[in-house]
């Protein structure tokens, strides 16, 4: 007779799997749990069961009844739940939102650069954007005849006051104020007399770097630039240094990173060279040390520059610098 219990169980499992709505659930209840349902009918068979099996038959039937009851209740509850939700609110409608604040992309990139250099033990320094000729040129060993001083390239306020053309004057201010050791970066806005186009803006943003100490070497400069490249763009980025010329450094270098788009394979953006020019660097020229009263025999130092706008353009694949300053919400809200 225990076979009979197993038959009911199998039939129930089959029936419950095809229940789709409340009506068919009710049919299920009547079929198994109703007064004339399968379970009740099975109990009526009890007298025909042999006496020695009667106890286990009763127990088995009760267990099955409880199980069916549970499954029925669970399914009923779930039907009620769904009907209430779908019946009252549309969960797919957008949520209630306020305005979202965001950093300007150049700030995001500058923050990343500052984080990296603070991690290397650099401080962040600052200086005025309207500068004297002394800080912007003279103390940096840039002679009066240098083409950078031309009215064609530099914006002047008076003959002796300029809109700084680079962040290098901050080097001079910090060295005048502090004794070595110095390890600092100076991010900020700079100005050139350039007509705006896709790759030029009359104002843009640079980071200056400077380290001065008793044992600061060209090898340290190469190391810090390489470490920066890895942190900023990834460990597969190579760095290349080429000799160059700047009045305020000697030896001087241009440094390139392997192209961040093709990772050095060569592509359209890097004109198939695999390299992207980043900026200049070098060892602080003894004349610069002399201008701020640091003894070049005792101390050595390195300095480097980089363009925040340029790095942001590389990072996000932006091909027009003017986008940063147009402040189009469709652009700004992408960052």
């Amino acid at each position: 007779m225990l076979v009979k219990i197993e038959e009911i169980r199998k039939a129930f499992e089959k029936d419950i799997s095809s229940v789709k709505d409340r009506a068919s659930l009710e049919e299920l209840r009547v079929k198994y749990l109703g007064r004339k349902g399968q379970i009740s009918s099975a109990f009526t068979l009890m007298p025909q069961v042999p006496a020695e099996q009667r106890k286990s038959f009763g127990q088995g039937l009760n267990i099955l009844k409880n199980r069916i009851e549970q499954q029925y209740q669970a399914l009923k509850a779930s039907f009620e739940e769904t009907s209430r939700d779908t019946g009252r609110i549309d969960l797919s409608l957008p949520g209630r939102k306020g305005f979202v604040g965001r950093k300007h992309p150049l700030v995001a990139v500058a923050d990343e650069i500052k984080d990296i250099f603070r991690g290397f033990g650099f401080t962040v320094e600052d200086g005025p954007e309207i500068e004297t000729d002394f800080y912007n040129f003279e103390a940096l060993n840039i002679p009066k005849t240098h083409p950078a001083r031309d009215m064609q390239d530099t914006l002047y306020i008076t003959e002796d006051v300029v809109l700084r053309t680079h962040t290098s004057p901050v080097q001079i201010r910090v060295m005048q104020r502090q004794k070595p050791p110095i390890r600092m970066i100076a991010p900020g806005r700079v100005y050139r007399r350039d007509t705006p186009d896709a790759s030029h803006s009359p104002f843009f943003h640079q980071v200056e770097g400077l380290a001065v100490g008793k044992d600061v070497t060209f090898a340290d400069l190469k190391g810090i630039i390489q470490a920066f490249a890895h942190r900023m763009f990834g460990k597969d980025i190579n760095v290349r240094f080429r000799p160059s010329f700047f009045p305020f450094t000697e030896p001087s270098a241009e440094y390139d990173f392997s192209c961040v788009f093709c990772r050095g394979e060569g592509c359209r953006v890097c004109k198939h060279t695999g390299w992207m020019e980043i900026s200049g660097a070098g060892m602080v020229h003894p004349n610069v040390f002399r201008a701020v009263g640091i003894d070049p025999e005792e101390y050595t130092g390195y300095a480097f520059g980089m363009g925040i706008d340029r790095i942001a353009m590389l990072k996000y694949g932006i091909d027009d610098i003017r986008l940063f300053f147009e402040n189009d919400l469709r652009f700004l809200t992408q960052f």
Binding site: G98, V100, R102, K103, G121, T123, R189, N327, T333
Partner: peptide, 30 residues
Amino acid sequence: LEETSSDRLLAFLRDELIHLGLQEVFTNSM
């Protein structure tokens, strides 16, 4: 090494403005 700039203050103020739901812009100083 002592940091003398107001960079951290500016970053703090900026964060508070962003938390208020404001979008940062960069405009020409000329």
